[in-house]
Amino acid sequence: MFPFYFGSANKHIYGVHHEASGDEYRDEAILFCCPVSHEYMRTHWFLKLLCEKLSSRGYHCLRFDYYGTGDSSGSFLDADIDEWIQNVVAASDEIKELSGCTRVSMIGVRLGAMLSALASEVVKPERVVLWDPVVDGQVYLSELEMLHEEMIQDRSRFKHLPASNDEEIHQILGYQYNDNLFNSIANKKFGLSKIRANQISVVTGKNNHTVLKNNKDKQPVNISYIDSNVESDWLYLDNMEKMFFSDRLSDVIVDLFIE
């Protein structure tokens, strides 16, 4: 496990390279596209362990933080979704160079799944694994805002309830979104037909594939839907700050790579 910076000197991106180990050589590296905001915090531990599992089976893996998030430079207030997509592309180049692999696959989680799908036109990954992908940016933000409103009414959390959000300021679950970021997420939609990958796997909990299966986009022939039977409860207030962990989900994802 090797933390490093990449990107430009004034906008450095923090990444962690998990070097491949094990007996098998694989000409395929895996890029992890994490979620943002509170979901980043919830999944950090799980994604690290997943990287360790996959790297022990011969895959070079790279986790990284988008600009203005995690340990990367910049403030969340300056964040921009198009820049995050560029970060995905840069990270893909980086892991290819670090590992010497000619092929890259991506594992994207929630908004990270949408970013990996949007970046796939440039990255052209071998496979894309989308775990509980955000399909519609507008719906995603509305759900987060509803969770935020529920959270600020929670008397077990606050002795004095905070005021509701000022509509001009997008304060959602611990982060302030600038207008540009808020509007650009709201305008992003996940287009199945635009994903450029040889294999697409959509992993969701408790058979929750309805949104994507009913997507008006033509279903790609290379797509598979996997029911992990694991409820991630992204919108459940009591789990908001609990670390996500599931051996079962980890096995489901590892099995997609170890045939």
Binding site: M41, W45, G70, D71, L173, Y175, E241, M243
Partner: peptide
């Protein structure tokens, strides 16, 4: 604990700055 060095809602990064 399991909450890494970034801190809750990136608190430790912002406080560092």
């Amino acid at each position: 604990g399991l909450l890494h060095k970034v801190g809750p809602f990136r608190m430790f990064v912002d406080l560092s700055a």
